[in-house]
Amino acid sequence: MSIVDRKERQRAERYDLIVAAARDLAEAEGWDAVTTRRLAGLIDYSQPVLYSHFKGKADIMAAVANGGFEELATRLRTQTAMGTPDVLRNVCAAYLEFARSQPVTYEAMFVLPTQIKFASADTPIALRATFAELLAALGPDRPSPELLAEVLWSALHGMVVLVQSERIPARGADVRLDVLVQSFGRQSR
Rank of each mutant, 00 (worst) to 15 (best):
T80Y: 10
V161W: 03
D5C: 00
A137S: 12
R75I: 12
R23V: 10
R23F: 06
R14V: 01
S165A: 09
Q115E: 07
K55C: 11
R176T: 07
D5L: 01
P103L: 10
V161Y: 08
D59G: 15
I168H: 10
V19Y: 02
K7Y: 03
T78K: 05
R189M: 12
V175R: 12
I116M: 14
A73G: 15
A65E: 10
I43V: 15
S46K: 13
A33H: 04
R37S: 14
V104M: 00
R37H: 08
A20M: 00
K57E: 08
S165D: 07
P169K: 15
S188Q: 15
P145T: 00
A136V: 06
A119D: 10
R171V: 11
A20F: 00
P143I: 03
D16R: 01
A21H: 14
V163Q: 03
A81N: 09
A28Q: 11
P140C: 00
D44L: 02
A137Q: 11
F184P: 04
T130G: 06
A40H: 07
A21V: 02
E13W: 01
G172C: 05
L76F: 10
P124N: 04
F184V: 04
V175M: 07
V163W: 01
W153R: 08
I43Q: 08
T123F: 15
A155L: 13
M82H: 13
L147H: 12
G56K: 10
L156M: 06
Y95S: 10
A28I: 01
P48N: 09
N66P: 08
L25H: 05
M109C: 12
D44V: 06
F184W: 04
R6V: 05
V111N: 07
D86S: 14
D32S: 14
L72D: 02
M159V: 05
C92N: 13
Y106W: 15
T130Q: 14
A132K: 14
L135A: 02
E146F: 03
N66C: 12
R37M: 11
Y51P: 08
R128S: 09
M159A: 05
V160F: 06
Q182H: 12
M109R: 09
A62S: 13
Q182F: 06
E13I: 04
K57R: 15
V87F: 14
L162E: 04
Q79I: 02
L96G: 05
R89F: 13
R186K: 12
A170H: 13
S52T: 04
S144Q: 02
E133M: 01
M61C: 06
Y15K: 03
I168D: 11
S52Q: 00
K57S: 04
G83V: 04
S183T: 04
V91T: 13
I43H: 14
F110D: 11
I125L: 00
F184K: 08
A22V: 04
V4Y: 01
S144D: 15
K57N: 09
V4W: 00
V19W: 00
V179K: 09
I60H: 01
D122E: 15
D16T: 02
M82A: 12
P113C: 12
I3P: 05
P124R: 14
R23I: 03
R189E: 10
